[in-house]
Simulated assay, not measured.
Amino acid sequence: MLAMTTPREALRASWEDQQNVHEPERELRFRLMLDYVGQLTGTPTRVLDLACGPGSITRRVLDRFPSAEVVAVDIDPLLLDLARDAFAGDPRVQVVARQLADPDWTDGLDGGFDAVLTATAMHWFPPSALAGVYAGVARLLRSGGVFANADHAPIAEPVLRSVADKLHDEHLRSTFADGVESCDQWYERAYADPRYAGLWEQRQQAFAHWSGDLLEREGWHVDLLRRNGFERAGAVWRQGNDALILAVRA
């Protein structure tokens, strides 16, 4: 007999669906992220999933490296609930509420991580806050540990950047015209669930300081990472105006 899908499982599945629409090469980015972690650190034993959402990266880390332990942090109350439900009873995973914009966001987190991984989240931070996130990541990583950030890092050349934006916009328009759910629609539907009554206001407060659309080129991020504790950094993959930037702690 097939197991019944719970409402939280259905929300996690539809999260994956809409994220795959917004980021068509999402699975490739995740695979490359873990490929580089394996090459640079060996089999990781401790991983930090930064801005974890419902646990997408955490799930892929555990599938790839079953012996790893993962600390997954986020601030969105609904996404934290979905992540805690996803890994309930799994001693390898600790899900923690943490406001990454706070200067002391690393307090209480044990360091020595082999890898810190994040996707499509860092572009929400203003530059000053992002510098604090990068510095905190460096403090939490062991020497030689890897930070992998898959996010928007536009092409520096303006004409090519504009073409990449146009191609991505055309992809979204054609996909959404077929009735596929967008990220904004997912949030609207998910927070309308009576189970999360009152949590939308908490989310609005938690994200009030986030600016969004920090569209700085790869080199800007590389410079910021090097100024905040990383020995080397660079993009290892690009699809249009999205890139996977890796940095290795000194």
Rank of each mutant, 00 (worst) to 15 (best):
A3P: 07
T6Q: 06
T6N: 13
T6D: 12
R12V: 10
S14H: 10
W15F: 11
V21T: 13
H22K: 15
H22L: 13
E23C: 12
P24E: 06
L28M: 12
R29Y: 07
R31K: 02
V37Y: 00
Q39H: 15
G42R: 11
T43R: 13
P44E: 03
D49M: 01
L50G: 00
G53V: 00
P54C: 08
S56G: 08
I57R: 03
R60V: 07
A68E: 05
A68L: 05
E69N: 15
A72T: 07
I75P: 03
L80P: 04
A86I: 00
F87G: 02
A88N: 12
D90P: 09
D90Q: 01
Q94H: 01
V95R: 01
V96K: 02
R98V: 06
Q99M: 09
A101G: 15
A101R: 14
D104H: 02
W105E: 01
G108F: 04
A119G: 09
H123Y: 14
H123G: 12
P126I: 02
S128L: 12
S128T: 13
S128Y: 08
A129H: 08
A131F: 08
A131H: 06
V133Q: 00
Y134P: 03
G136S: 07
V146K: 14
F147V: 13
N149M: 11
D151A: 09
P154L: 04
I155E: 08
V159D: 14
L160Q: 15
L160V: 13
R161G: 10
A164W: 06
A164P: 07
K166T: 05
L167S: 09
D169S: 02
E170K: 06
R173P: 06
T175Q: 05
T175F: 04
T175Y: 09
D178H: 15
G179E: 07
S182P: 04
E188I: 04
Y191F: 03
A192C: 13
R195T: 10
Y196G: 05
Q202P: 04
R203Q: 02
A206Q: 00
W210M: 14
E218T: 13
W220A: 07
V222D: 11
V222M: 10
L224N: 12
L225Q: 10
R227I: 03
N228L: 11
E231Y: 01
R232E: 07
A233Y: 01
A235M: 04
A235G: 00
V236P: 01
V236W: 01
R238I: 02
G240E: 02
G240Y: 04
N241E: 03
V248N: 12
R249P: 02
A250D: 13
